Computed example of a mutant assay.
Amino acid sequence: MHARTFAPILAATFAAGLVTAGQAHAAPTDADAPALAERVVMYDASASAEFRTAVDRGAAVWNESVDSVELRPAAAGQRANIRILADNGWPRALTTSLGNGTVYIGRQAVSQGYDTVRISAHELGHILGLPDRKPGPCTSLMSGSSAGVSCTNPYPDAAERAEVEDNFGLGPAHSAAVPGKVVVD
């Protein structure tokens, strides 16, 4: 279970614990409280063509897997951090900074039999600061195509989840995303 679920419980528990062993303690100020709110990253999948459902599912996988960042579809006219496009090439991501960039869901990999939800989650992983980890097993989302066409696992493993939590919990200075870097899978 993730911190989003526990935040209200933690707040109540913390507030109840202000008086301990007969001693009164001052309530913490907002500056003293840890940042429990996740960073929201907006994505625009309006140009993802036939991959729109797979993109939304890939974003949902990340939302189910980590607490420090939430991927949300941008409303029409709303500024998006991530643009997602369909094209005829190989899937790839162009990062501009942590949580920002362009993802291409390439039809070439899909025509070879790779799973569209895994592709989407993998490419979003690059935008969230993760590098490729090839070769690798199907249990590693960032192993990408090296896991083979039979691999349909769209979920990041524990190390990948922890890295994204660290990237967004500690800020862009800890990110593996390199501005202007194209990651071709």
Rank of each mutant, 00 (worst) to 15 (best):
M1T: 15
M1S: 15
H2L: 14
H2S: 14
A3L: 12
A3D: 07
R4T: 01
I9S: 14
I9M: 14
L10I: 10
A11F: 03
A12D: 09
G17V: 00
G17A: 15
G17Q: 14
L18M: 13
L18P: 01
T20L: 15
T20Q: 15
Q23N: 13
A24M: 10
H25T: 14
D32L: 04
A33K: 15
P34K: 03
A35C: 05
L36V: 03
L36P: 02
R39H: 07
V40T: 14
V40G: 03
V41G: 03
M42E: 03
M42W: 08
S48F: 02
S48R: 01
S48I: 00
E50V: 14
E50F: 09
F51V: 04
R52K: 12
R52G: 02
T53C: 00
T53M: 08
A54D: 15
D56E: 04
D56T: 02
R57M: 05
A59H: 06
A59V: 09
A59Y: 01
V61W: 09
S68E: 05
S68G: 01
V69I: 08
L71R: 05
L71K: 07
R72K: 15
P73W: 09
P73V: 11
Q78A: 15
R79E: 08
A80Q: 10
A80G: 10
I82S: 03
I82K: 01
I82Y: 03
L85P: 01
A86F: 11
R92E: 09
L94P: 08
L94G: 03
S97F: 08
G99R: 10
G106Q: 07
R107M: 11
R107I: 00
Q108I: 00
A109L: 00
V110N: 03
S111F: 01
Q112H: 07
G113W: 05
Y114W: 10
Y114L: 06
D115E: 04
R118L: 00
I119Q: 00
E123T: 03
L130K: 13
P131Y: 05
D132S: 12
D132H: 15
D132G: 04
R133I: 10
K134R: 13
P135Q: 04
P137D: 11
C138D: 08
C138E: 06
M142C: 10
G144M: 11
G144S: 13
S145T: 09
S146R: 02
S146I: 02
C151S: 02
T152V: 07
Y155L: 08
Y155A: 09
P156Y: 01
D157I: 07
D157G: 12
D157V: 05
A159C: 02
E160N: 06
E160P: 09
R161C: 11
A162Y: 03
E163N: 06
E163M: 07
E163K: 12
V164A: 06
D166Q: 11
N167M: 07
L170H: 13
A173L: 07
S175A: 14
S175T: 14
A176S: 14
A177P: 13
V178M: 05
K181W: 12
V182W: 09
V182T: 13
V183E: 14
V184F: 01
D185R: 11
